[in-house]
């Protein structure tokens, strides 16, 4: 009897904890989604109302009055471009670190160490550099001045690359060298070995790195806020624009936030299989 009681208590505790943790994670998201469907008069009342007539008013406001899809489009372009660059440059760099031990470990550490200072420490120089470069012909051509997508693409690439390299190095290290040797003897050139043998094996790792990079870029606020005004603003800045002089438009903020979460949510769910494989890939072998 005693045995059963204690095991019941343990199970209860286990599920209690799971519910608690899930609550912390799910509740704000649920709150955001619920709020996005509330009519204005139900948004800021206390105690909160959970029974209300749902409305699309907030979405209409966010999409038509505030042109929120414009921010989505910007963000999509900037974060996807930056992620593609990060993945290509990061994979090549990580491969050479993993295989040729370039820089004897010091260079790799240096690259990682650039992640150690806060982003805000460089925001002022970035601002000045992009302001001046944007005025030059090349800067205008490439769109890398202030309030232009190029500035954010470069910033996000610079800031995500070290992390991506660091993550990818371990994935490449896990691929046995013999496979590459064998492929070279079997008639492939070095580049073909990279494309046909190494990349398929590193695919889960590359997918994981890509997902992280994309999420970081998508959610970034500081650089987007400082370096853009109107033309190249991203979703995080877009949501901020709902904090008006007349007050904070909580309903449309919730609607805009829901819209900006959706693409990432769908994307991560679609990639989940690869992500789990990628995340456990290194752990199992180590």
């Amino acid at each position: 009897m005693l045995q059963r009681d204690s095991s019941f208590a343990r199970e209860a505790l286990r599920y209690g904890l799971i519910v608690l943790v899930l609550g912390f994670i799910v509740f704000p998201i649920a709150w955001m989604i619920i709020t996005s469907f509330k009519p204005p008069e139900d948004v800021m009342v206390s105690p909160p109302r959970f029974l209300f007539t749902p409305t699309l008013e907030n979405y209409v406001h966010a999409i038509y009055d505030k042109n929120f899809l414009f921010y989505i489009k910007n963000t999509l372009f900037i974060s996807v471009t930056s992620t593609v660059i990060v993945i290509i440059a990061g994979s090549l760099a990580a491969y050479s670190f993993a295989r040729y031990n370039v820089g004897d470990g010091h260079l790799l550490f240096f690259i990682l160490s650039t992640k150690m200072f806060p982003a805000i420490a460089v925001i002022l120089p970035y601002f000045l550099i992009f302001r001046d470069v944007g005025k030059t012909g090349v800067g205008r051509f490439l769109g890398i001045g202030l309030d232009q997508p190029g500035a954010l693409i470069i910033s996000y690439t610079v800031f995500n690359l070290p992390f991506a390299i660091w993550l990818l190095v371990s994935f490449f290290q896990d691929i046995p060298r013999e496979l590459e040797h064998s492929a070279r003897l079997d008639g492939l050139s070095r580049l073909q070995v990279l494309a046909k043998v190494v990349c398929p094996l590193a695919a889960p790792g590359i997918a994981v790195t890509g997902v992280f990079t994309l999420i970081f870029s998508w959610n970034e606020f500081l650089f987007a806020y400082i370096l853009t005004r109107k033309v190249a603003s991203t979703v995080t800045v877009g949501v901020e624009s709902f904090f008006t002089l007349q007050g904070i438009l909580w309903g449309p903020v919730a609607a805009a936030a829901t819209i900006s979460v959706l693409p990432m949510l769908v994307f991560v769910l679609a990639m989940q299989r690869y992500m789990v494989r990628g995340l456990t890939f290194g752990a199992v072998r180590g």
Binding site: E178, S182, L185, G187, S189
Partner: peptide
């Protein structure tokens, strides 16, 4: 180059793709 020497090799770890 390795691929032009017509050398085959079998590895301790098998090195199967």
């Amino acid at each position: 180059r390795a691929r032009d020497r017509n050398v085959a090799m079998s590895f301790e770890s098998y090195a199967l793709y």
